[in-house]
Amino acid sequence: MTIKTARVVVFCSTMLVSTLAVTMDSRRAMPRHDDGGAVSLFRDRVAAYGELRQQVVTDLLKVGLDPNAADYGQEFRNRLGLAIRDARQRAKPGEIFCPEIAGDVRRKVWTSLQGVDDILEEVPAVSRVRVNDFYPEGEPLATVPPSLLRRLEPLPPELQYRFLANALILLDIDTGLIVDFIPDAFQRSS
């Protein structure tokens, strides 16, 4: 086995194990909600995204792209983002954040952000947030309050809740791809 092959095997194994572990942990750790299945639906959709993403990673590795290349994986991540976008080209807002979850998340965001305008000051303002757009290059990532993260459904490591304009977005952190978003998740005071 060459060093390159070994690296690829380690990379794939790590991604698979971490995704599975987090998914299993998330499901074990979360209390059951009387939410008409919305939480389960959200988890299933997140898991489905993870599976699609893993398939795209596998495909990229098969064609010889190296996530440990000398550019520190930048080309791999770029290609991964574009390939996921292609695979989800018909994705619409709300496909992962179903309406019931979106309402619940919006309430939690509003509660958590009351009186913390300093966080909102750092949220980049863009004219429009869209699924399958990339997070604006060079823009900072505003802090997401830990108290809010504690109240939201856990996500696998490749996904994060982030703020952009007035939306809460589901961001693929490695690729910068906006996977889904909740519009009007909060309001700036100024």
């Binding site: 802090t143 997401v144 993260l149």
Partner: peptide
């Protein structure tokens, strides 16, 4: 990573 202090990190 204080930018995203999620429960897993804590």
């Amino acid at each position: 990573d204080s930018n995203y202090l999620d429960p897993a990190q804590l």
